[in-house]
Design a binder for these strands. Structure first.
Length: 573
RNA sequence: CGGGGUGUAGCGCAGCCUGGUAGCGCAACUGCUUUGGGAGCAGUGGGUCGGGAGUUCGAAUCUCUCCACCCCGACCA
């Protein structure tokens, strides 16, 4: 390909409305253009990258014996009513009426459609297991689309759905998909982690998210420094580093603390170690108990994990912190002096709180705190639960190593759906005994367009994108110096171009009549992994100059060795 | 949807407070010179100042209203 036939549309200045680096670079490099909020055109250069990712995904899915099909984007309301999601899904589901005023929606996902296919087409256990997939445009009317292609309303997704006669078969395919996903992200050259995930509202038992590690990630994930353990921060189990509570040494003492409203104040004014302070958080109670409020206690240096708190039977869903006047009414004290002693409501304490002695907390009297509180001596030990978010350096729950916390971009998610949709839509097959059984289902998604943005988040420098080899739009940038003036350069470039293309290498020849610096800057911005410069200077020695996108020095390569050199550079390690 | 912010040439911005012929840089186009890290000079084209209404002799500028877009939160590939 030649730049004269393949306009690059690069821009030097960063568009004002792009916040994160991948969005900025995708606009600057001319990969995408915005049409409206959350809607993007993939320009020719960007589409080449998208297609490469698609090809890798397709390749690995086919290897895993999944079958590609393609379902409609527009879906009839009836199927969604049958699954119950027409009501459930909310405004993210874009609903439309046709000319006959029949209700449809734009597919945000395809469980209903594929389950309808399955119940019509699959009759026998002999046809199972089977795994269908498609790579197709999805539409979700996101509340707030942002970060360009990363959270767009229209996006490209690979979604797969598997059907099974029993759980064991589902587990087998699930494991295969886990491996397939690992292969896909590895081939795309990404640093990723498979993370234990919340099954949330979709239901089912087991679920993993695949996260690309990058600072711009929207999710915090915790993972072990030595093992495969990784979990969403909301879900990572907080394991105390000690398992015995030390002996009580101090006497219980009520202290005047007129200027201490926060843990920070207490630590600074009274030299109490922060690890022996306790935060008392008052939240709304669920209907399961008689009181309106519940107290949750975590150590002063820990953060309450709202997801974990919400899962407690005593706590209202969604979690709601009590207002100051509610607290005053119930306890007769403001939020700055709360503590477990004489607290007129159920108390649930974090595991680590159960393991401290001689700790400090509010006295439930304005401007007073207790120091030297000890469980069982001064008050009974309340219910203990895992309430806090893990922190960097906490022991890994699997007992191997400690936890590191990083941000991740979710590019894949695999679920064991179980029978949620197959039951709702009555998708049954006959089993070995000739009995009708409801099929079990798995579903497996990859955000194909998001993956492109994630790859940039993880691979860029000040000059622009650094594509991982497998998804680069072109493999080699061929840059002639003063081609218009030099017959010799012209001939050498044409010959080189022909040789590289004959060897199956994707070359972008910059045949624009622009200055060298302009070419270099453009090729670095769009992230071509390998660069060949041909000029009079090198030709005198019978050489070209080669530089990898991540290198800072040129190397000279004899003309007749260029193809083999490039081929070697393109071969994965 | 709640909170914050921005709309002026393809992109980045100034002008608005204090109303009076719409400007700068980049990009584009033409010509000449130049050519190993985003060239120089000369010239050219491009604007319903987000839309509507109002105030005024006169509105990019003041008022009202609608719209679009961006950022923070709940959701998710």
């Amino acid at each position: 390909m030649r730049t004269s036939k393949f306009p690059l549309n690069t821009v030097k200045e960063t568009p004002a409305d792009a916040e994160i680096i991948s969005h900025q670079l995708m606009l600057r490099a001319g990969l995408i253009r915005k049409l409206a909020s959350g809607l993007y055109t993939w320009m020719p250069l960007g589409l080449r990258v998208l297609r490469k990712v698609e090809k890798i995904v397709r390749d690995e899915m086919d290897k895993a014996s999944a079958l590609e099909l393609q379902m409609p984007i527009v879906q009839p309301a009836e199927l969604w009513e049958e699954s119950g999601r027409w009501e459930q899904y909310g405004p993210e589901l874009l609903r439309i009426n046709d000319r006959h005023n029949r209700a449809f929606c734009l597919g945000p996902t395809h469980e209903e459609i594929i389950t309808d296919i399955a119940r019509n087409e699959l009759k026998s256990y002999k046809q199972l297991p089977i795994n269908f997939y498609q790579i197709q445009t999805k539409f979700r009317d996101e509340i707030r689309p942002r970060f360009g292609i990363m959270r767009a309303r229209e996006f490209l997704m690979k979604d797969a759905y598997s059907f099974h006669v029993d759980q064991a078969s589902l587990q087998e395919t699930y494991d295969l998909m886990y491996q397939t996903y690992s292969n896909i992200f590895t081939r795309c050259g990404l640093n990723f982690r498979a993370v234990d995930a919340d099954t949330g509202s979709i239901g089912g038992s087991t679920s993993h998210e695949f996260h690309v590690l990058a600072a711009a990630g929207e999710d915090a994930i915790a993972f072990s420094t030595v093992s495969d353990y990784a979990a969403n921060l909301e879900l990572a189990e907080a394991v105390p580093s000690t398992d015995e509570r030390p002996e009580a040494k101090e006497a219980l003492e009520q202290i005047n603390t007129p200027n201490a409203k926060t843990i920070q104040d207490l630590v600074e004014q009274f030299q109490r170690p922060i690890e022996t302070t306790v935060k008392t958080l008052i939240v709304a109670a669920s209907d399961e108990i008689d009181t309106d409020l519940v107290a949750l206690l975590v150590r002063g240096d820990h953060e309450l994990n709202e997801t974990k708190a919400e899962k407690l039977a005593q706590v209202a869903t969604p979690l709601r912190f009590a207002e100051e006047d509610e607290i005053r009414q119930a306890i007769g004290v403001g939020p700055g002096s709360l503590g477990p002693i004489n607290l007129p409501m159920p108390i649930i304490i974090d595991r680590s709180v159960a393991l401290i002695s001689d700790f400090s907390a509010g006295a439930n009297i304005d401007d007073k705190h207790y120091f030297g509180i000890n469980w069982e001596r001064d008050l009974p030990l309340p219910e203990v639960a895992d309430l806090r978010s893990v922190q960097e350096g906490d022991p890994s729950p699997d007992g191997k190593g400690t936890l590191t916390i990083a941000r991740g971009i979710e590019v894949g998610h695999i679920f064991q759906l179980g029978k949620k949709y197959s039951t709702a839509l009555k998708a049954n097959v006959l089993n070995h005994q000739g009995k009708s059984v409801t099929m079990s289902m798995g579903c497996y998604g990859i955000g194909v367009s998001r993956l492109v943005a994630a790859a940039i988040e993880q691979n860029h420098d000040d000059s622009g994108i650094i594509w991982p080899a497998a998804i680069a739009p072109f493999q080699v940038a061929l840059l002639p110096m003063k081609m218009k003036k030099s017959e010799r350069v012209q001939q050498a470039v044409e010959k080189m171009m022909a040789e590289l293309e004959a060897a199956g290498i994707e070359v972008l020849l910059d045949d624009r009549d622009v200055r060298p610096g302009f070419m270099f800057a453009d090729m670095e911005l769009i992230g071509i992994p390998h660069r060949i410069v041909i000029g009079e200077r090198g030709l005198d020695e019978g050489c070209i100059e080669y530089r990898g996108r991540e290198q800072s020095e040129n190397s000279s390569i004899p003309l007749d060795q260029v193809v083999s050199h490039i081929k070697a550079a393109l071969t994965p390690d």
